[in-house]
Design a protein around this nucleic acid. Structure first.
Length: 111
DNA sequence: CACCTGACATAAT
DNA sequence: AATTATGCCAGGT
């Protein structure tokens, strides 16, 4: 029988990112840059990498992380609109609202 | 082992 | 105002 084995231990950096993301309450979102600052890291890009890498399933609500412009940049490692709309749906079901441009309304962003 | 690339953000040109 | 360069971190080639 197949066992889902953790590929490799997440790096220390990734663990910190995940821990932080786990704290994001439903119905709120944060930006990559915000996370980066919380971690004292000067690169939001690194955050994106950590999340992209497919965190352990829904354990880490990575769908609550958006760009600074409040656009949804990616989900499940993909940048396709289809994935993005799913991300959007998830957020919607948590009560987050969007404007006509597909940006989350500023009110929901922490920071 | 060296180089490229990416779910970003910001400062400098 | 628009493009380019830098920062950071890990995986992939």
């Amino acid at each position: 029988m197949s066992v889902q084995q953790p590929r490799v231990s997440p790096t220390q950096f990734q663990q910190r990112v995940y821990q932080l993301v786990e704290k994001i309450p439903a119905g709120r979102v944060v930006t990559y840059g915000w996370l980066a600052r919380q971690l004292g890291c000067n690169s939001s890009r690194a955050i994106g990498q950590a999340l992209r890498r497919n965190p352990f399933a829904p354990r880490v609500p990575c769908h609550r992380v958006v760009g600074k412009n409040r656009l949804l940049t990616g989900y499940q490692g993909l940048t396709e609109n289809q994935s993005l709309s799913r991300k959007q749906n998830l957020l919607s079901s948590e009560g987050v609202e969007f404007d006509g441009d597909g940006k989350v309304q500023p009110h929901y962003v922490i920071g």
